[in-house]
Structure formats: structure tokens, C-alpha cells
């Protein structure tokens, strides 16, 4: 009968086959060169393979992910999303309200501007009418003044003509008197009055003209 004595030192494995028949008694294992692992506590067995997935990690990871995903799907996400959607909707409504308010304000501004334009047209019309009235009145006043000036000038000119004619007749009679006196002195006899006055009138009209 063979007894296998396995000796493990570090990473190497040694196997001795000891025949119990030859010795006739069971092998005393304590005599073998057997070093327990605990002699070097920092050196323990090799770690897990970096490639092969470990079942315990797979189970824990899968479990926690599935729980997380289900919570997210049915509880956490809908709650968050509902809040987000309601806020977005309220913001959008606010925007729409602001847009409608702005549109109504715009139409009011347009109405006001139309009213302003109408009032301006009215004012311009009134001003034009007033200006036209003023113009006609002015024209009438000017015509009246011109007429008055013309009549006064006529009158003045007539008076001046009358005065001039009167003066001239006086001058003529005076000249006739002087001429007839001068002729009486020179000739000793009184000239014909009508001839003298005719000659004087001829000479004066020739001199004046």
C-alpha cells in the first residue's frame, strides 16, 4: 500500500509516495517536511481570476441593478418627471399669457395711434378752415381799405385840381389886370378886355404846357 504525502511550499506542490509495506507501519506525517500555510500570513492563495465573473458578485450586482431599475421605472422617474412636466407646462402657459397680453397691448397701442392720427387730421382741418376765413377777411379788409384810399385820393385830387384852376384863374385875372394897366400906361387908352384876356390865356397855357 502506498501513502501519498503532499507537501506544499509556496506555489510548488510536491508529492511523495511512501510505501507503508516497506516500513510496516503508518507513515508519521509529523516527520515529513510539512510547512503550514500560516507561516507567511501575507502570502495567501491567488486572488480571483480577473476575467471569469464571480457568481456572488454577479448575483449582488444584478439584484441591486434590477431593484434600482424597477424603482426608477415605476416610482422615482415618474414622480420627478411629473414635477418637471408640470413646471414646464406652467412656464409655457406663462409664456403664452405674456404673448397674448403683449398682443392685446399692441392692438391698444394701434388703436391709440389711429385715434391720434384722426385727431391730428381734425386739428389740421380746423386750422385750415380758420386760415381760409382769416384770408378772406384779410382780403376783404384790404379791398375796403384800398377803396377808401382810392376815393380819398380822388377827392384830394379833385380838390387840388379845383384849387389849381382857381389859382390859375386868379393869376390870369391878375395878369390881365397887370397887362391891361401896363398897356393903358403905355398907350394911354384902355385895351379891349376880352382880347387881352385871350392873349394872356394863350401865353399862360403855352408857358404851362
Amino acid at each position: 500500500m502506498l501513502t501519498a504525502v503532499v507537501i506544499r511550499s509556496g506555489q510548488a506542490l510536491q508529492v511523495h509516495l511512501v510505501s507503508s509495506e516497506t516500513s510496516g507501519e503508518p507513515v508519521d506525517l509529523s516527520q515529513c517536511e510539512f510547512k503550514p500555510e500560516a507561516t507567511n500570513p501575507t502570502k495567501c492563495g491567488p486572488g480571483p481570476s480577473p476575467i471569469i465573473p464571480e457568481m456572488k458578485e454577479l448575483a449582488w450586482g444584478a439584484g441591486s441593478f434590477i431593484v434600482f431599475a424597477l424603482l426608477m421605472r415605476f416610482f422615482l422617474f415618474p414622480r420627478l418627471k411629473k414635477g418637471m412636466d408640470s413646471r414646464y407646462n406652467s412656464i409655457r402657459e406663462g409664456h403664452e399669457n405674456a404673448d397674448s397680453t403683449r398682443a392685446s397691448a399692441r392692438s391698444e397701442v394701434a388703436q391709440y395711434e389711429a385715434a391720434v392720427v384722426a385727431a391730428k387730421a381734425e386739428a389740421a382741418k380746423v386750422v385750415d378752415a380758420a386760415r381760409a376765413t382769416l384770408e378772406t377777411e384779410r382780403q376783404a379788409a384790404i379791398t375796403a381799405a384800398n377803396a377808401r384810399i382810392a376815393t380819398q385820393r380822388e377827392a384830394a385830387m379833385a380838390a387840388a385840381d379845383a384849387a389849381r384852376t382857381a389859382g390859375r384863374s386868379q393869376v390870369e385875372s391878375a395878369v390881365v389886370d397887370v397887362v391891361s394897366s401896363a398897356v393903358e400906361i403905355a398907350t394911354g387908352k384902355r385895351p379891349d378886355g376880352s382880347a387881352v384876356s385871350r392873349a394872356v390865356a394863350d401865353a399862360m397855357s403855352a408857358g404851362v404846357r
Binding site: P53, M55, G61, F65
Partner: peptide, 10 residues
């Protein structure tokens, strides 16, 4: 945790 194969595989 993803440096172990279990999570990425799952």
C-alpha cells in the same frame, strides 16, 4: 465595481 467581470457581463 465594473472592473470585475460580473457587472459588465450582467
Amino acid at each position: 465595481a465594473t472592473a470585475r467581470m460580473a457587472l459588465p457581463v450582467f
